[in-house]
C-alpha cells in the first residue's frame, strides 16, 4: 500500500513538474521576445495583404535591415486603432482622409503616398441598372439608385477603406448614405460587414452590384464569374495607399525608428519598382506613385 502510494505520488509530481516546465518555458520565451527591439509590427488592410504583395516585398526589408516584420491584416478602421493604441509601429492603409486625421491627431509622424490601384463597380453580366456607359461615377451611382427596385447592392459595411470610399461616392453623387443604409428593409442595399472576397461572392450569388478594388476582383475572377466590371476609370475611383510611421510621443513603446525606416524603404525607387512589377495572372495589381 505504501509502495503504491509512493508511485502514485511520483506520477502526480511528474504531472506537476511538466506543467510547471511549460509555464516556465512560456514565461521565459515571452520575456526574451518582449526584450527584442528588432521586430516591426505592420498593420495593414486585408485587401493589401490578400493580394500577396507584402509576402513578395517584405522579405527584402527583413534582409536589408536584419529585422523581423509582423504583418497584421485587418480592416482600415482596426489598423488605425492599433496605431492609436500603440500596438503597431507602422501602418499601410488606403483611406487618405482618415490617415491625414490620424497624423493630425498626433498618432502618426507623417504620411507618404505609396501606390494606388483602382476601384471598379461590378455587377451581374446583363447590367440591369444600366450602369455601363455612365459619364462619371456619380451618374453610375445615380443609375443604381434609380433602379433600386430591381437590383441588389452589396456593401462591405465594415468600416474598411473600400467601405469608406463607397460612402464617399454615394455622398458625392448627392445621396445621404445614412438614409440609404437605413433602407436596409427595402432589401436592395445590403450591408454585409464582410471582407472584400466574401462581399464579391455574395454579390455573385445574389446577382448584385458591388464596389471592389480591382486587385481582389482579378484574383477571384474565376469564382465570381457571374460578375462583370461595368464602370471603371473615373479619377474618383483611385484607391490611394499611404504609409504612416506611428509616433512614439503617444506611446513610448512604439518602435518608431524601425517604422520610419520602413516608410523610407517602401517609397524607395527599388521597392517602388518591385510594386510596379508585381503581377497576378498576367495583370498588374498596383501602380507605385511615391513622390521621392
Amino acid at each position: 500500500m505504501v509502495g503504491i502510494r509512493k508511485v502514485q505520488h511520483r506520477k502526480f509530481i511528474t504531472v506537476l513538474v511538466v506543467l510547471a516546465l511549460i509555464t516556465a518555458g512560456l514565461a521565459a520565451w515571452w520575456y526574451i521576445e518582449s526584450k527584442r527591439d528588432d521586430i516591426l509590427v505592420l498593420a495593414t488592410t486585408t485587401s493589401t495583404y490578400d493580394s500577396g504583395l507584402l509576402d513578395e516585398i517584405v522579405p527584402d526589408f527583413e534582409e536589408t535591415y536584419g529585422v523581423r516584420v509582423k504583418t497584421i491584416a485587418m480592416g482600415t478602421g482596426q489598423a488605425l486603432e492599433l496605431g492609436r493604441n500603440g500596438d503597431a509601429d507602422v501602418i499601410l492603409v488606403h483611406a487618405p482622409e482618415r490617415e491625414e486625421e490620424f497624423v493630425e491627431e498626433g498618432y502618426g509622424k507623417y504620411r507618404y503616398e505609396v501606390m494606388y490601384n483602382e476601384f471598379v463597380l461590378v455587377g451581374p453580366e446583363d447590367d440591369p441598372a444600366g450602369v455601363r456607359g455612365s459619364q462619371d461615377v456619380s451618374e453610375a451611382f445615380n443609375r443604381l439608385y434609380e433602379n433600386r427596385g430591381s437590383i441588389t447592392f452589396c456593401s462591405r459595411g465594415d468600416d474598411s477603406g473600400t467601405h469608406i470610399k463607397e460612402i464617399e461616392l454615394w455622398e458625392d453623387a448627392g445621396f445621404d448614405h445614412d438614409e440609404i443604409d437605413s433602407q436596409a428593409h427595402s432589401h436592395w442595399y445590403k450591408s454585409l460587414g464582410q471582407g472584400m472576397g466574401d462581399t464579391l461572392r455574395t454579390a455573385n450569388e445574389l446577382d448584385g452590384y458591388a464596389l471592389t478594388d480591382e486587385a481582389t476582383y482579378i484574383s477571384l475572377k474565376e469564382e465570381v464569374s457571374g460578375l462583370d466590371i461595368h464602370f471603371s476609370g473615373d479619377q474618383e475611383l483611385f484607391n490611394q495607399y499611404g504609409v504612416i510611421p506611428v509616433c512614439e510621443n503617444m506611446n513610448p513603446n512604439v518602435n518608431n525608428e524601425l517604422g520610419e525606416e520602413f516608410a523610407s524603404w517602401i517609397v524607395s525607387e527599388e521597392v517602388q519598382d518591385m510594386i510596379d512589377n508585381y503581377i497576378i495572372d498576367g495583370e498588374k495589381i498596383f501602380t507605385a506613385n511615391a513622390q521621392i
Partner: peptide, 10 residues
Amino acid sequence: SQRGPLGSLN
C-alpha cells in the same frame, strides 16, 4: 494592448 493594464508585458 500597450494602452491596457498589462501592455508593458508585450
